[in-house]
Structures are given as C-alpha cells and as structure tokens.
Design a protein around this nucleic acid. Structure first.
Length: 836
RNA sequence: GCCGAAGUGGCGGAAUAGGCAGACGCGCUGGUCUCAAAAACCAGUGGGGGUGACUCCAUGCCGGUUCGACCCCGGCCUUCGGCACCA
C-alpha cells in the first residue's frame, strides 16, 4: 500500500470501556480553558480565514438556535484550521438593549449587573459546547472600552455629514417607551413586543443611510456568496424606482403641486389628483371654503389612525374632494384635487396623480367616487371602453388620447414625454428610494450615550474625542415612562461646553443597539486596540469576514446597517474593504412539532438538559446531522439518541482495537476485504471533505462517516485483518469526526497513542489510487427500464459494454420479438437498448 | 396581489454533471444473547401482484423535451417565508 499519512495504533491513554461523555468533555474543556489553543494572531504571511457567527444578545440562556448557529460555524472554523488557514473565530456580546432595563424596573437590579451575570453564564454554556473560540478577543458592546468607540464612530460619521438631527414624525412604541427605526416596525407594530406603533413628532438623531442607497443596491450584485433571498429582500427594502416629478399648476393661483410618478406615459389620463392628508397644501386650499370643515375632520381622523390600519392594503380606500382644481401640465385640463388615506406623506412628494384607466388602486378609487376614467394606452388586440372596464389596464400598449404621442409604444412614449416635460420645465426625471434615513435615538438608559452637547451659545456641540467615553451614570432611576432615564441623573445632564466653556446640557438619548452591532466584526480584529476602534493593519489582514452565519431575521436590519457602516468607513479611509461579509449563510430555524421552538409555543428543549443527558458532542452531532444548515430543522429526541448511539458505537470500535494494533512490518499485498476497507476510507475522506468545503452539507458528511464506521464493523469480522488498513481507517475516522464532535475525537485520538491534539492535525487528503475499482457494476436498460446489472472490469469501452449487454440472457428475453433501434452505451455507467 | 423557497417512504433526509430513486439516521418487525429486561449485535422494512425467478406502480398534479427526468421546459395545486396602498 501507499506510504499512508497515518501511524499505527499502539496503546495510548488508558481507555474506559464505557463512553463517559461527562468526564471526557470536562477534561478537554478544562484543557482548552487553560491553554486557549484557538488564540490567533495576525500573521500576514499565512492565509487567513474569518469565520463568524452573529453574536448573541446575552439573555442568560443559550437556546437551540444558538447551538445550531455556533455548531455550524465551529465546524467550518475547525475544518479551515486543519486545512492550514489562520482562522479568526471570535465570540462576543450584543449586550445593550431593552431586556436588561426591563429587568431593572421589574426586579430592582441594575441593568449592568443583570447583563454581566448573563454574560458569565452564557459564556460558561458556550464553553460546555466545546466551540473553538479565541476567548482573548471577546467583546461586549456595553463595556466602556467598546462603546467609547461606538461613540467615536458616531462623531466620525457626524464629522462627515452623515449624522444629523431633525424633528420628524417618528415611530413610537408606547410599550417600550422609545422611538424605533423604520426597520424595527413590522406590520405597523414594534418588532420586539408587537405593540402598535404610533407617530410622534420628536427631535431625533439620524444616520444618513439614504446617501448610500444607490451603492448599497448596486453592490448587492457583487455579493455572489449571499443567498439570493437576502439580496432580494434588501433590494426590496431599498426600493429604487425611476420616474418623473411632474408639476401641476393650480387653476386659480400660482401654487404648484409636484407629484411623483413612474408612469409618466399615462399623464394624459390623469382625471384627479390626491394629496396625503398631512400635505401642507391641504389647509391652504380649503381655508375659508365650504369644504374646510369636512376636510379638517377627515385629516383629523387619519392622524388618529395607527400605522397598521392606515397602511394596510386591506383597508378600504377613502377620500374627500377639497373643492380645489389644478391643471394637467400636458392637456391643460382641469383636475380635481382630493385627499385620501392611501397617500403617504413620507414617500415621494406626498401627492399623486390619479390615472384610473391604468392603475388598479386609482381604478378602485375612481369607481368608488365616480371619477372619470380616460384610456390613454390601448392594448394591441382590443379596444378599451371606460364604461365597460372592470379592471385597470396596466400592461404595455399603444398611446391614444395623448396628443402628439398617439401611436407610439408606451415604453417609447415614456422617454419622449419625460424629454418633453423637462424641455418645457413641466417636470424632471427623478430616482426615488423607499429607504429612509436611520433613526438611532432611543429614550432608554441601557445603550451607548449619544456624545453630543447643547450649549445655549454654541448650539449643538460634539463631545471632544479626548472626553470619550461618555459613560453611563449610575445615579439614575428606572421607572416606566416616556423619557430617557438619563434625565434623572443630575451629574450626567450638566456639562461644560468645550467651545465656550459655558454651561451645556448633555444629550440624554442613547443609540439604537444596531449601531453597536454594525461594527463589532471590525473590533474583533484588534479588540485591545486603545488608540482607535481597530488597528488598520489587523483589519486589512482579517477583513472581510469569509463566512458569516446567522438567522435570516437579520436580512435587512443588521446586514444592511453593517454594509452601510463598512462603506462609510471605507470612504472615510479607515478600512480597505467596502463590503463586510464575503459569504453569508442563513441558517434555518429549529422547530419542534412543525413550529418554531419558542417559549410562547411551549415547545422548547433546553440545550442544558440535552448536554447533561447526552453531552455536547451528541447535541452538536445531532443538530448538524438532522438537516442541512439552511433548512429548518425538526428537533427529535429519538434522533438525538441515534447520534448518541453512534458515538458509543465509535467508542466501542476504537476500544476494541486500542492497544492491540501493532506496527506493520512493511508492505503486504492486500486481500479483497482489506482493499474494500481502504477504498472506503479514502472515498469517505473525499466525500466528507467535499461536503464540508464546497457545500456545508454537514448532514451528508456525517452520513459518510457513519458508513465508514459500518464498514469497519464489517471488516472487524474478518479472521485475518490488515492492521495498517484498520489503523488508517480508524485514524481517518477520528480526524473526520473531530470538527463535529471535538471532545470524543480528542479522547479517542489520545487513546490511540497520539501525543499531539487531533485538532492540530492536518486535514487528510485522499489517495486517488485507492478509489480505483477493478470491477464495476454497469446497469443495462431496455427502453429506459433497468433489466440487468453487469459486473465488468473497469475501463471497458462503449462498444465492448454494448456487446456484453446484448449477450445477457435476461436482456435477450426482453428483446424477443422486438427490433433494436438504437443502443446508448455510457462507459462506467450504463447501456440502454432502445427497441420497437 | 407581488417576489422567493420548498413539495421524495411511517418520520428527518440522500441522490454533487440528465443515468440503479429512497444513502445515512429514526421508527417498526423478526431473530441472537439473557431467568428476564435494557444495551449490543444480526436480518428485514416504499406500495401492489406472484409459491417463485420475477413483475407492475411510485419523487405534489397535468403536459413536453430526451434513448433515459426527483433533476430541464410549460401550465396548475399546496405549504412556508418575505414584501404589501411606495404612486
């Protein structure tokens, strides 16, 4: 046989007959804790690999979703490490946030105490999982050494004009008593607590993410390693559209109303115009008219409605005529101005034109209020009669009733009309985005304080860099209410203006926790850096993250904000990459009885219990075996027992051989059984390597390892066994198992007499020569149906196979009375005989 | 409504490039061992028909391409996820 990459088993550590997972896991966890074998440093000469799981909020308890997430990344990290990469695999805590503060109010415990206690217990649980983290890089966003730099970055964005303060109608969650970003409002409700969100007019801080809308959209095309689903969701969220802002002059004044439309080819068909109830012109148009009272009542009613009912497409369209008219810029026709619930003030211009013939929503509205319908685009195959129409016609067609544009395809008219309007000052082309600026102010205590001051003389003043961090005061009261608890701290509020030296007032709002999590992957590169948020040389080496893994629930929020941060920091010249995450894997949920595991559904299985009962290796193995990573996973305790049984089976196999295999005295001719086992060893090496490296299909990788174990058991029954072949198989087995079940693999490795760690081994490569089979099975089909199997020498050519197939008695039976039309012969695979 | 993903045994899932459908595991059935049980080990396990060698059916449904389709194309159905008055 070949020289083989492995040595022989000759007794190592004494081995228990029983697989005592508790003792084993504890032993190696202690060892890893003491030696931190996964500590990594920047080594420019070595190829790097940055493996990252989304860091958790420290709720205090690990759940199965965490276990799955971290197990997946750990396999990748261990695999890459064994392949010779310098692997960065850090862990930390997204540790600011509301639950800590709610606990403070409820239990009279300080958020800081609550949080750090939780971190301690979760860190312990992670250690019990045996994940290969570099614990020296641990970060916590609530630590002053971290949030100092969050504040520094805020000021950096401020300096570059990407942070501003404005008064705006913002989303307010009455239950959380704070404002929310658009992204945190789901179906008009708070994404945390599901309470209906209301609008409040407040002075708030914003990040100018809209400046990056176009590049955030464009660069999605570069992210080949991201799931299409996530990119689609981001594209959707950014919501780019191209259209025209058209100016409608008033019939009886000099006012102009600007509307935004993407269907300027239909402007000739405008029969009414609608303003958002909040539109500033509404009051002006109706003041002192007969319509004023009714319109005011309508506007008042709309303001009282919450976000859900107001923006749901289920909601009946409701509107009211204002009594005013404007003029169609293309036809000069008088157009009535309405207000309606479905027009939103914060998109476009807050005013839309109504073209019932070619827009579903306008059609419904026009039918309801009996507004005229003018057809301006005709389908090629029929005529449209406004009276007969039951639906708007929204497809392409030929222009009609459109003056000089009649007869053109509407797509061409789109261009011509835009040109026409621009030439005459009737409108301008405009690109619009649905993405809004990111509101980051939170009226809560447990967050990074926004480092700004207000001076009566100098106005808004940033806290100087040398005064950072602005630390959270401890003399605050926690009580439910709408004001930041920081306002209850006298020592915090009062400050000195760094510009004039006079009295200044501190900003009391804290930052959205998504700000903290938008750059933590950079801090991991140089967690101890004191002069900057991160050291340039470290970031240059480690970034981008090679593989990021987390739940799809962050598809927009965290992933979009992080991309924005990376791009901005790139533009400021602080980092050399403009996308943070090269490859993204969105793992599926952990379910039980068909529903996502959750407290509210009462179908939760605690990782602690599973680890206590079966051990971490079993838990990891099952969770990786039960489904591929992207797919939802159905938890099944019997499946867990299966994984536990498998580890026991491996244990007994090694136990059987440990100390009994002796050094082989040179090359021996292998018999059939030994050759089969050796081939199995090498096909398994290939399969497992491919499954991990190219597809992250850990479930099939584990299946392959199981098959190798089964093959070893079969070979164990051989009276004459080739010890070198067995040793090679067992060594491969333990190495292949090591990323999945690190504790037992280490224990077995040592029991096999190895002095060094299995986790420090080089990932083995397979011997292609060992895969070669002398004889292979060829299937023989007649009309595509399998009729026979032939065992033939490997390497026969098509013609030879065909001849052999045509001589088989079984095949001849099927050919009887038929005529052979054609024979397809694929060497190494099959022969298909087509008959009539 | 729009966008996306997925539908394969009793269950979780395999089939990597269009070539043996159901790997691996769970469950179940039978057996060995045992006073007995558990564990472990061995055998079987998609459905129908046949004593049998065998044979027919089968990857949500209908059609197509192909010597050959779980896989490619067209049309539907169902489930899940996202978006949802964005002008």
């Amino acid at each position: 046989m070949g020289e083989g990459f492995l040595h022989f088993v000759h007794g190592g550590m004494a081995m228990d007959e029983r697989y005592d997972f508790q003792r084993i896991e504890e032993r190696w966890q202690q060892h890893w804790l003491a030696t931190n074998p996964y500590h990594t440093v920047t080594e420019v000469a070595k190829p790097k690999y940055y493996a990252l799981a989304m860091f958790p909020y420290p709720s205090g308890k690990l759940h199965m979703g965490h276990v799955r997430n971290y197990s997946i990344v750990d396999v990748i990290a261990r695999f890459k490490r064994m392949q010779g990469f310098n692997v960065l695999h850090p862990m930390g805590w997204d540790s600011f946030g509301l639950p800590a503060e709610n606990a403070a109010i409820k239990n009279q415990i300080h958020p800081s105490t609550w949080t750090w206690d939780n971190i301690a217990s979760m860190r312990e649980q992670l250690r019990q999982m045996g994940i290969s983290y570099d614990w020296e890089r641990e970060v916590a966003t609530c630590h002053p050494n971290y949030y100092k730099w969050t504040q520094w970055l805020f000021l950096e964005f401020y300096k570059h004009g990407l942070v501003y303060r404005k008064k705006a109608a913002v989303n307010w969650c009455p239950s959380c008593a704070t404002v929310l970003a658009n992204e945190q409002v789901v179906d008009g409700a708070c994404e945390r607590c599901d309470t209906s969100v209301i609008k409040k007019d407040l002075e708030q801080w914003f990040f100018r993410i809209t400046d990056y809308a176009q590049v955030l959209l464009d660069d999605l095309d570069k992210l080949d390693g991201w799931p299409e689903k996530v990119k689609t969701m981001q594209r959707n969220w950014i919501g780019r559209s191209e259209g025209v802002e058209a100016k409608f002059g008033m019939a009886e004044s000099e006012e102009k109303i600007t509307v935004y439309t993407t269907r300027h080819d239909t402007i000739f068909g405008v029969t009414y115009l609608v303003l958002a109830p909040e539109h500033p012109l509404v009051a002006k148009l109706t003041q002192g008219t007969a319509y004023e009272a009714a319109v005011n009542a309508f506007v008042h009613k709309m303001k009282g409605l919450n976000e859900i009912t107001r923006t749901s497409s289920e909601t009946e369209k409701e509107g009211l005529f204002t009594g005013a008219y404007c003029l169609n810029p293309l036809t000069g026709n008088k157009v009535p101005i309405w207000i309606a619930n479905y027009v939103l003030m914060d998109y476009g211009t807050g005013a839309v034109m109504g073209v019932p013939a070619h827009d579903e929503r306008d059609f419904a509205f026009a039918r309801k209020y009996d507004l005229p319908i003018t057809v301006v685009i005709a389908p090629k195959d029929r005529d449209l009669d406004p009276v007969e129409m039951t639906d708007a016609y929204t497809d392409d067609g030929v222009m009609v009733n459109s003056g000089e544009f009649n007869g053109l395809d509407n797509e061409l008219a789109m261009v011509k009309i835009a040109d026409y309007m621009e030439e005459r000052g009737l409108g301008t082309r405009k690109v619009n985005f649905r993405l809004r600026d990111w509101l980051i102010s939170r009226q809560r205590y447990w967050g990074a304080p926004i480092p700004m001051l207000y001076c009566d003389k100098c106005g808004e003043v940033p806290v100087p860099e040398e005064d950072l961090p602005v630390t959270l005061p401890t003399d605050v009261e926690f009580r439910p209410g709408g004001e930041s608890p920081l306002k209850t701290s006298p020592t915090f509020m009062e400050a000195t203006c760094p510009v004039c030296g006079g009295k200044a007032r501190r900003e009391t709002d804290t930052m959205d926790t998504f700000v903290c999590s938008s750059w933590y992957y950079l801090r991991y590169c140089s967690p101890d850096c004191n002069a900057k948020p991160f050291a340039r040389e470290d970031v240059d080496y480690w970034m981008p993250v090679d593989q990021y893994v987390g739940g799809v629930e962050h598809a927009i929020l965290h992933l979009l904000y992080s991309r924005f941060f990376t791009k901005a920091l790139y533009d400021f010249g602080h980092i050399g990459v403009n996308e943070p995450f090269q490859n993204l894997l969105t793992q599926g949920m952990v379910c039980m009885n068909g529903a996502k595991m959750s407290k509210s559904k009462g179908n939760v299985v605690s990782p602690e219990d599973i680890i206590a009962k079966y051990g971490a290796d079993t838990a990891r193995l099952f969770i990786l075996f039960a489904a591929p990573p992207e797919r939802d996973l159905e938890w099944n305790e019997q499946g867990v027992e299966g994984s536990y049984r498998f580890l026991n089976r491996v244990w007994r196999l090694i136990y059987h051989y440990a100390g009994k295999l002796e050094s082989n005295a040179g090359a021996v001719e292998l018999d059939d059984a030994a050759r089969v086992l050796r081939r199995m060893t090498h096909t398994t090496l290939k399969r497992v390597t491919d499954d991990i490296a190219t597809r992250f299909n850990f479930n099939t990788a584990i299946s392959a390892i199981m098959e190798l174990v089964n093959a070893c058991y079969v070979y164990k029954e051989q009276p004459e066994q080739n010890q070198a072949v067995v040793d090679e198989a067992l060594s491969a087995l333990v190495i292949l198992l090591s990323p999945f079940a690190p504790h037992i693999a280490e224990e077995l490795w040592r029991a096999m007499g190895r002095a060094d760690s299995v986790h420090l081994q080089q990932w083995p490569t397979y011997d292609p020569a060992a895969l070669v089979q002398d004889e292979i099975t060829i299937i023989v089909q007649v009309n595509g149906k399998v009729r026979d199997r032939l065992t033939v020498p490997n390497g026969l050519e098509a013609k030879q196979l065909e001849q052999m197939a045509l001589q088989e008695p079984k095949i001849l039976q099927h050919l009887e009375g038929k005529q052979v039309v054609k024979v397809i012969s694929v060497p190494g695979k099959l022969v298909n005989i087509v008959v009539k």
